[in-house]
Every structure is written in structure tokens, then in C-alpha cells.
């Protein structure tokens, strides 16, 4: 199973990469499982995902929660709460 992972903003810096293609085992069926697997793998992505309080998730460019299923070919993005626009 091949899944594209994207990291943005400070998660990208902490992960040490903006994107990667991973092949988790078939036991990974949702975003929660994917996060657990990425944490277990260690390195930058594990550090980026160590505290999920300020992490938002999108699956195939749609906002999602950790119970969202993941399947082969999906694009899963991790990023902080958004801060676009102007004139705060």
C-alpha cells in the first residue's frame, strides 16, 4: 500500500521533508493507525507528529479527522491550523 504524505509549515521543518511516499503494513487502515506507524518509524516525521494538539489533517485535500480511512493512493497532509488572509 502506497500513500503520499505531505507536511506543511512548521511540521515540514520538523519532519525535515515536505513530502514522502510511504508503504505502511495492511494493518494501517485509518489516519490514527498511519500516525502511530509514522511515530514508530522515528526520525523527523515522528518528531513532527509527537504532539497533535496543533496538527490538522487532510485526506485527498479534504479536512479529515484521525478516524478517516486511508487506502492505497491516498494523499494525507499534516499541517498546523491555517493563518491566511490579512488584517488580523
Amino acid at each position: 500500500m502506497s500513500i503520499s504524505i505531505l507536511y506543511f509549515a512548521w511540521l515540514r521543518e520538523r519532519a525535515g521533508r515536505g513530502e514522502e511516499v510511504v508503504s505502511p503494513p495492511p494493518t494501517v487502515t485509518d489516519v490514527a493507525g498511519l500516525i502511530e506507524w509514522l511515530r514508530g518509524r522515528g526520525g523527523g516525521p515522528a518528531a513532527a507528529l509527537s504532539d497533535l494538539r496543533a496538527v490538522r489533517i487532510a485526506v485527498n485535500q479534504e479536512y479529515a479527522t484521525v478516524d478517516h480511512p486511508v487506502t492505497a493512493g491516498d494523499e494525507v497532509a499534516f499541517f498546523p491550523p491555517v493563518t491566511g488572509g490579512g488584517g488580523r
Partner: peptide, 27 residues
């Protein structure tokens, strides 16, 4: 449009000041 855009569209701001950079936290 501007109110929803700020909390929904996936943009992130990084400020550079005093030789350092900092990601802006959501408000």
C-alpha cells in the same frame, strides 16, 4: 469571505524579524 478564508483556506504565515523566523499561530 475574508472571515471564513482566514480559518479555512490552507495558508500559513511565517514572520521573519530580527534575523529569526516564527510561524504565526492561529488566532
Amino acid at each position: 469571505l475574508i472571515d471564513w478564508l482566514k480559518t479555512r483556506a490552507p495558508f500559513w504565515k511565517r514572520e521573519e524579524a530580527g534575523g529569526q523566523h516564527r510561524w504565526v499561530a492561529a488566532c
